[in-house]
């Protein structure tokens, strides 16, 4: 939207501004997103509301159109960069204002693989949904996952692989968790374009997630179950 010069974000009422931010996120306009976030905060929106209604909802639309083949990887990357810029403003404020924390997740691309676009997107959307996310980056051997589990005590472990040759490594990690007797303390989610549900089952993961939106829903559902189980034990 190059010829949008006549839209002045600060003059838009909240509803229109949020809609405009969804468009700007869709178009990957980082500066406009930063400006929009600042305006909403100045108008008294909580960081959490700004995050969910302006950024996460906008990115959900981007994710949908990517899934449906309307948007492609470069556009998604630009949108993700814009969202990241908005989140950078919100992150410290979220902590200060005690925004809800649903759970903790350690995520990484498995050993031998350096594809990370999808993993980064999942990481960002989970953070947006209220998870504390520890991102181990690329090329993670089992010892990196173990060290992160020890240090951060996450609820969920996420593994990403985009190569046929690196997918099987997920089983190595899960088998090691079993050997150590900690497999059942964790929820294991796996993803990456070449995977499918059957593969996830065969390596012993709890679920395969087709995209970031499904990852958020699945992670939330497992946290809910965990919560209910704890409540049942207490009762």
């Amino acid at each position: 939207m190059a010829d949008d010069g006549d839209i002045v974000l600060s003059e838009l009422p909240d509803g229109d501004l949020v809609k405009q931010m969804h468009d700007d996120l869709y178009d990957g306009l980082k500066d406009e997103i930063e400006e929009g976030v600042r305006i909403l905060l100045k108008r008294g929106w909580t960081p959490y509301r700004t995050l969910t209604e302006a950024l996460v909802e906008g990115m959900r639309i981007v994710g949908e159109d990517f899934r449906d083949g309307i948007l492609f990887v470069p556009e998604v990357l630009l949108s993700a960069n814009a969202m990241k810029a908005g989140m950078a403003i919100l992150r410290p404020l979220l902590v200060e204002t005690g925004a809800p924390r649903i759970g903790k997740m350690v995520i990484g691309t498995v050993k031998g693989d350096i594809h990370d676009i999808g993993k980064n997107l999942v990481s960002m959307m989970l953070e947006g949904a209220g998870f504390e996310v520890i991102d181990l980056g690329i090329n993670n051997g089992v010892e990196k996952y173990l060290a992160a589990i020890e240090e951060h005590k996450p609820d969920i472990i996420g593994m990403s692989a985009l190569l046929t040759t690196t997918m099987p490594y997920m089983k190595v990690v899960i088998d090691t968790l079993k050997e150590k007797g900690i497999r059942d303390d964790l929820v294991v989610l796996v993803g990456g374009a070449p995977l499918n549900e059957e593969f996830a089952r065969s390596v012993g993961a709890d679920a395969y997630c087709r995209d970031a939106a499904v990852a958020v829903e699945t992670a939330k559902e497992f946290m809910m179950r965990k919560h209910n189980q704890r409540a049942a034990v207490r009762a």
């Binding site: 492609f72 990887v73 470069p74 556009e75 990357l77 630009l78 960069n81 350096i114 990370d116 676009i117 690329i138």
Partner: peptide
């Protein structure tokens, strides 16, 4: 194919680890 002609700023997002 990766959109680097239109968006050279994406170079690191794709090839930062290479």
């Amino acid at each position: 194919g990766l959109g680097l002609d239109r968006h050279p700023e994406l170079r690191d997002a794709y090839f930062g680890h290479y």
